[in-house]
C-alpha cells in the first residue's frame, strides 16, 4: 500500500547539544495503518512525533506527508499525553477547537462536533468544563478534538499513560473501534510493549545513542486480539528483548 508518511534519514539534536537524540531514522506508514513506536525514555519517541506534527524542527533528513489537502479537513491531528484541553472552554468548545479556519458552515461544524462526541461516547458531557471530567474522559475528549478535523493521520503521544489500568484497557478498545470506523492511519507513541502489540499493525522499536529504528515487527495477529493470548505475549517478549 502507498505510504502516507515517509521519514527518511531524520535526525534531531537540541540547540546547544551536538549529540543527536536520534539519527538516520527511517520509517513509513501506509494509509490506514496503525504503527506503534516503543522505546525507553530519552530515545526521542515524543520528539519524533513532534517533528511529524510540525511542532519541532528536525536537524536533518526529510518528512514527507503524502496526504492531499482536502476542504474541511486537516491532514494530521495530534492527541497529547496530558489531554491538553483548554480549561476555559466547555467540552463542546474544546472538541471544536481545530475547526476554525476549515471553511465549514456553522451547521457543518455543529454536525462534526456532534458526530465525534457520539463516536467517543461523550455526548452527555458536552457542556461540562474540563475540570469536571475524569482522566479517561479528558483523553477521550482529546481524541474527539483530533477526530473532529477529519485527519488521515492521527498522531498519539502516550495518550493512555496517565490513566489507571482499567480505564486504559477501555480506552484501547475504544481507540481500535474508532480507528476501524474512521480508517485514519495512527502513529502511536508508547513505552508499554504489550499495549503496542495489542493495538498495532506494526511495532517499531527505537533504541541506541543516538537512537534509530532497531526493530520493525509486523503484528499479523487477527483482530479482535486477546490480551493474554500466547502469541501476543510471545511477540511482546521478543520485542522486549530488543529494547
Amino acid at each position: 500500500m502507498a505510504s502516507i508518511l515517509t521519514i527518511e534519514n531524520l535526525s534531531f539534536h537540541y540547540g546547544d547539544n551536538p549529540a543527536p537524540v536520534f539519527d538516520d531514522l527511517n520509517l513509513s506508514i501506509a494509509k490506514g495503518e496503525f504503527v506503534a513506536v516503543v522505546g525507553g525514555s530519552g530515545v526521542g519517541k515524543s520528539t519524533l512525533l513532534k517533528c511529524v506534527a510540525d511542532l519541532a524542527h528536525s536537524s536533518g533528513g526529510r518528512i514527507t506527508l503524502d496526504i492531499p489537502e482536502r476542504r474541511g479537513s486537516r491532514r494530521r491531528a495530534t492527541v497529547f499525553q496530558d489531554g491538553r484541553l483548554l480549561p476555559w472552554r466547555r467540552l463542546r468548545g474544546n472538541v471544536g477547537y481545530g475547526l476554525k479556519g476549515l471553511e465549514l458552515s456553522a451547521e457543518a461544524r455543529e454536525e462534526r462536533i456532534r458526530e465525534v462526541l457520539k463516536l467517543t461516547r461523550l455526548s452527555e458531557l458536552a457542556d461540562r468544563w474540563p475540570h469536571q471530567l475524569s482522566g479517561g474522559q479528558v483523553q477521550r475528549a482529546g481524541i474527539a478534538r483530533a477526530l473532529a478535523v477529519n485527519p488521515e493521520l492521527l498522531l498519539m503521544d502516550e495518550p493512555f499513560s496517565a490513566v489507571d489500568a482499567i480505564t486504559r484497557q477501555h480506552l484501547q478498545d475504544e481507540l481500535l473501534n474508532i480507528w476501524q470506523k474512521t480508517g485514519a492511519a495512527v502513529l502511536f507513541i508508547t513505552h508499554d510493549i504489550e499495549e503496542a502489540v495489542y493495538l498495532a499493525d506494526r511495532v517499531v522499536v527505537l533504541s541506541g545513542h543516538p537512537a534509530h529504528v532497531r526493530f520493525d515487527q509486523p503484528i499479523d495477529l487477527p483482530r479482535p486480539r486477546g490480551r493474554n493470548a500466547d502469541d501476543l505475549q510471545h511477540l511482546a517478549h521478543t520485542i522486549a528483548q530488543e529494547l
Binding site: 506534527a53 510540525d54 511542532l55 486537516r74 491531528a77 495530534t78 497529547f80 496530558d82 491538553r84 483548554l86 477547537y97 481545530g98 476554525k100 479556519g101 478534538r145 478535523v149
Partner: peptide, 20 residues
C-alpha cells in the same frame, strides 16, 4: 503547552491566539 496546542490545530494566527 497551549501555544503548542494552537499550533497543532492550525490556530496560531496572532489575533486568534490572542483571543482564544
Amino acid at each position: 503547552k497551549y501555544y503548542e496546542l494552537a499550533q497543532a490545530f492550525g490556530q496560531q494566527g496572532y489575533l486568534n491566539q490572542a483571543l482564544n
